[in-house]
Design a protein around this nucleic acid. Sequence first.
DNA 1: CATAATGTTCAATACATATTGAACTAAATG
DNA 2: CATTTAGTTCAATATGTATTGAACATTATG
Lengths: 158, 158
Amino acid sequence: MNSEKLTYIEEAGLAFELFGMTRMAGRIMGYLIVCDKDAVSFNELQEGLKASKGSISGTTKQLVAIGFIEPVLLPGDRKTYYRVSNVDVGTILRGRVQLFIKFATVLEKGRNLKSQNDRVSDWTLEMSSFYRWFGSEVEQVLNKWETEKDNYINDRDP
Amino acid sequence: MNSEKLTYIEEAGLAFELFGMTRMAGRIMGYLIVCDKDAVSFNELQEGLKASKGSISGTTKQLVAIGFIEPVLLPGDRKTYYRVSNVDVGTILRGRVQLFIKFATVLEKGRNLKSQNDRVSDWTLEMSSFYRWFGSEVEQVLNKWETEKDNYINDRDP
DNA sequence: CATAATGTTCAATACATATTGAACTAAATG
DNA sequence: CATTTAGTTCAATATGTATTGAACATTATG
């Protein structure tokens, strides 16, 4: 593992943190991406990331739970290997849209506690209406992607 | 300020935290929403939220910076008042989409550090391609919203 | 059965950062 | 000019949580 890759792994840690996950989750994803192996053992993750067994254990469980990685078992081998899942872009997106809707709905809930309608009432109503509507639009956009994606994915080695 | 509203203000704090902002930012938004005033003074926020001046000062500055609230000044009055801005749903959405693109791009960056293309390469490439494409789709969806929103916003008091 | 290999659990620690609170600036008022 | 008002700054504190590390469980192996 060269130093460029090690730097990248930390960068991935920060990116996942920005996205609301933990640094270690990002490091594990980064490691699995750049390591040029199909799957990586628990032990290699621990040594490669210089982290504790507890941290690897807990974080791999989280990543499996949200579907970003998956365990790989081999016959005659007691170890657990992990690899990046082919988690669908739509699944990730839908999760975020739900967060949006919840956020807007909490704002709009405040509206129902007011004793009068006013400028803020209108704003919260538009917020929640928009994000709810947006959720259904996203479904159409995802369908469009499925039919058109070949036009937009350009491999570096076609 | 009744107890239902006070409870709501804390709930708003949690919602903003989920959205990557601070609890106090959410409390201030919550207060401004349910207080039934057009604008609220620094001092009222401090007393109403039982927070320190430092906290109100720092958090109002953040909320102004990101456009969620705006200061209101009155002639002959030294105080600063704050109110919820009519921040455009599109502005908020675009900010989140940028975060998405950055996230996917970091994953894809790992791809360029690999010595071979493989399953993970394909996945990161699709991720970043999708979210970049999605960014432009969102612009069209926002235009659609502007022309159609009247059909989707239903006031409780029409 | 004794030992090694593979993970798990959870209390303790480390770490980041949100919030406080006291000291401060700046401007208005009498 | 002295005092009050309004808000800012920043070092100290509180708080939450990510991570560690040691003890433990479990299963395989000789």
